[in-house]
Design a protein around this nucleic acid. Structure first.
Lengths: 164, 164
DNA sequence: TATTGTTATACTCTATAACTATA
DNA sequence: TATAGTTATAGAGTATAACAATA
């Protein structure tokens, strides 16, 4: 129990405020996944801070690069987002001259997404920063842990709810 | 390259849309962490759908239960949120009669947070649902994977940026 | 002067529903 | 009738800054 014998109390904020007891919550996958993911996002944001490219933007560029000509619907499926959420992101990337939307002959309802030359260079520059971010994470765990972590995360993601 | 020899194309939506090539992105911790975490949140939401208690609400109840009398500042630190973000959440929990804010004698600026009797029962009911959600996740991986996953996630969360 | 918590505000991301244009 | 994508909108969650009360 905390010492409360006298009126004397901590005044320096240097004194580490006793960390909370997490209890059962601290043993759950859900809580730890959330905390770690948010921590990862924080370093990610630091890594790409100067580029103004955040959230799914890099993933979108990387996926278009790997799958030139994919549609917005396919992209949405890959990152599990409704196409209406994708529209503003793609508008932005197109406005910045990184991505092109092309109406294919065979189906004029859809768009084929492709990186422009500028999009490719931007993507490569971002990739270098994201790579630095990944190496930052790698410093915290062993190579073996990394391999197992990714394997386990994939099993979780794949195992959960097609729910289409 | 996609077959485009004839006009004939896929018409049944039952035809599985060829999964995208994730490329380098698919080997990163950041991407897999994000996808798995979001998948986990989806099943979590299904588990507590009827309660209207989501996201951090359960974590807040659990943390108050484990650390009765903690302040909002301490709580914010534990879940890495600004206190201004906590205010509406605690307002809600107080309005629902689950949590009490008590001004302690020794420092009338702060609040001591405690669960009410009703808060305790609600928390236990929620815990049962969250536990079911955890078991759903457990079904996707081995016990050994679970242990290692949590250990690794903790290392990542702990290793990143005190950044205070 | 510093700290605890609240308010006002603004920003981002998200999905739902209604719409268009194509098929 | 069904699909690809857009628009309008609403909801949740977050942080920043200014503020009041207290230390």
């Amino acid at each position: 129990m905390p010492a409360k014998t006298s009126k004397r109390r901590i005044t320096t904020s240097a004194e580490s405020p006793p960390p909370l007891n997490l209890g059962w919550l601290g043993g759950t996958i859900g809580f730890n996944l959330r905390i770690a993911q948010e921590a990862s996002v924080r370093t990610y944001l630091r890594s790409v801070a100067d580029t103004g490219t955040l959230q799914w933007r890099f993933a979108i560029l990387a996926l278009i690069n790997e799958n030139p000509g994919l549609t917005q619907a396919a992209l949405g499926k890959a990152i599990k987002r409704d196409t209406s959420s994708l529209t503003p992101a793609l508008d932005d990337l197109c406005n910045r001259g990184l991505v092109t939307r092309i109406r294919p002959e065979h189906d004029r309802r859809s768009y084929e997404l492709r990186l422009t030359a500028r999009g490719k260079t931007t993507m490569e520059q971002l990739k270098a920063k994201v790579q630095a971010h990944e190496e930052e994470l790698d410093r915290l765990i062993t190579k073996d842990q990394r391999t197992r972590l990714i394997q386990t995360l994939r099993q979780i993601a794949a195992g959960i709810s097609p729910e289409e």
